[in-house]
Design a protein around this nucleic acid. Structure first.
Length: 261
DNA sequence: ATGCCCTATGATATAGGA
């Protein structure tokens, strides 16, 4: 089974590249983030035509997550347990489903904007809800492979950004954010580390300042999974080729191959 | 070359991204 996660930065703007990428790479399950459209505006027909069932959770201009599957898609859950609001709004940032016997969540963790900002506290509270959801999911089905994949908006270590000296007083690298990842591991998840195809395996390069060409990347799109899921992994990599050229998302897809026997 | 920002919106600027 091939599973991928990809922050597409607008599924409608990215549609030609998404369709091409699906056709070439033939993933069985895809977790998308930053749809930037409502469920009604999601390009359902085009993606169904490639053989995928779709569960989306999008409300408009910002955020939005989806799962695509061609190995079944059941027991869809939208939102986290005790998910906090931001500015009085329940944002669409998490969706879970069972696909081919594997429980998969697509998550888009809040950015945080800057340490101390309301959005930063929201980010940490959102992680707490993700930890609660993880514990709930793990206890509900301890013998089922589980993966929580998506844009975590946290670089796990200093090596996961191109230059840590550029990140003083920045989000994505602070101790509380990294502690949130540690708590997920304490709850029973492990990180599936993608291999480097060329240089360090970053997943995001800002559109500005020709960051991709300069290698100014970050590894913030992560695969967290229970031990059972991880035990079946045969390969994991970042498709940095997809970041190249005109019309690319600022994130590259992360691909995980499993042998479920 | 991998290359000097992108997206959606009560749009003709603005918010958000990380």
């Amino acid at each position: 089974m091939r599973i991928a996660t990809w922050n597409v930065n607008s599924v409608t703007a990215r549609l030609p590249r998404v369709l091409e990428w699906l056709a070439v790479n033939k993933p069985d399950v895809v977790a998308l983030q930053e749809l930037k459209c409502t469920d009604a505006a999601f390009p359902t027909m085009d993606i169904q035509a490639l053989g995928y069932e779709i569960a989306s959770h999008g409300t408009g201009r910002w955020n939005g997550v989806a799962l695509l599957s061609r190995v079944g898609l059941v027991d869809v859950t939208r939102g986290l347990v005790n998910q906090p609001q931001y500015d009085g709004v329940d944002e669409p940032r998490a969706i879970g489903a069972t696909c081919g016997g594997v429980r998969i969540w697509s998550v888009y963790v809040p950015n945080g904007r800057e340490p101390g900002h309301d959005h930063y506290h929201y980010k940490l509270n959102w992680f707490t809800a993700l930890q609660v959801t993880t514990a709930t999911e793990l206890s509900a089905a301890p013998d089922r492979p589980l993966a929580i994949i998506g844009d975590y908006n946290v670089a796990p270590t200093d090596d996961d950004v191109w230059d840590i000296n550029q990140f003083t007083d920045s989000t994505h690298v602070t101790a509380p954010e990294r502690a949130a990842l540690t708590k997920l591991r304490s709850a029973g998840l492990v990180e599936v580390m993608p291999r480097a195809l060329k240089g360090y395996p970053y997943t995001f390069w800002d559109y500005r300042q020709a960051a991709f060409g300069r290698g100014w990347g970050m590894r913030i799109d992560l695969v967290y999974a229970n031990e059972l899921f991880a035990s079946h992994v045969t390969d994991a990599y970042i498709d940095r080729e997809e970041r190249k050229g005109k019309g690319a998302s600022d994130h590259a897809p992360v691909v995980v191959d499993l042998d479920l026997g």
